[in-house]
């Protein structure tokens, strides 16, 4: 299935960005992004394929291939690749909502015009899809947030959001794999570890994986 035509641009002399976004995030486009990413890795000179949100960064060796011909190859991959759902793993992430480590919970509920309990139940009722991993090691961009729960990101990012923070921003959800700055809202925390550099498989979540949040506790 063809999902539009990606806009392709240079990202320096050794990378191309394929942007398939047409307005808001689209799940079908994302499935195509994953499929094209896998297929692109077999092309001559391609070093890395990095799925973003409805876009794909292809890193290549400019001495092994060149941008114009690679760009043509990627366009035809985009048009011919079958966008099939990746058979991802299902994960359940227990979350302690609110409290000192979920300080935005009450503000979030107020923003949504819901009670704290309702807000949490909507968050835990959805099935999320890992759309992409990026920004920091193991960080999942999750799609599937109930539109009633959307909340634009903070105008000023926090300099430190701790590892395990369960966060949301706009129509996206996420979990912090490590302590880092973030402009997302903190609604709870989990003890599940998403990134272990020394492990054979350092990253727990993969694009296409499905996530459910389980309510381990609510503290208003």
């Amino acid at each position: 299935m063809v999902v539009g035509t990606p806009h392709i641009s240079l990202a320096g002399s050794g990378a191309l960005l394929l942007d398939g976004a047409q307005g808001a995030f689209n799940d079908t486009t994302q499935e195509l992004v994953w499929a094209v990413a896998n297929a692109a890795l077999t092309l001559e000179g391609v070093c890395e394929a990095v799925p973003g949100m409805n876009n794909l960064l292809i890193v290549f060796d400019p001495l092994a291939t060149d941008a114009p011909s690679l760009s043509e190859q990627l366009k035809s991959l985009w048009a011919s690749t079958d966008a099939h759902a990746v058979a991802g793993t299902h994960h359940t992430i227990p979350v302690h909502y609110g409290g000192a480590r979920g300080e935005d919970l009450a503000g979030w509920a107020t923003h949504c015009g819901l009670s704290v309990d309702e807000t949490v139940r909507h968050h835990a009722a959805a099935t999320y899809t890992v759309a992409a991993i990026g920004a920091m090691p193991g960080f999942p961009y999750l799609s599937g947030l109930d539109p009633r729960l959307a909340w634009a990101r903070r105008s000023t990012p926090r300099l430190k959001v701790t590892e395990g923070a369960v966060i949301i921003a706009g129509a996206q959800a996420g979990i912090m794999p490590m302590t880092a700055p973030s402009g997302w809202h903190i609604i709870g925390h989990t003890d599940v570890k998403l990134f272990k550099a020394e492990a054979e498989l350092p990253v727990l979540l993969r694009p296409g994986d499905k996530i459910r949040f389980a309510i381990a506790g609510i503290e208003a």
Binding site: G12, A21, F25, P51, M53, L57, A135
Partner: peptide, 11 residues
């Protein structure tokens, strides 16, 4: 308003 996308050093 851009969706998150991969970037390389030098961007």
């Amino acid at each position: 308003e851009l969706l998150s996308h991969g970037i390389v050093p030098g961007t």
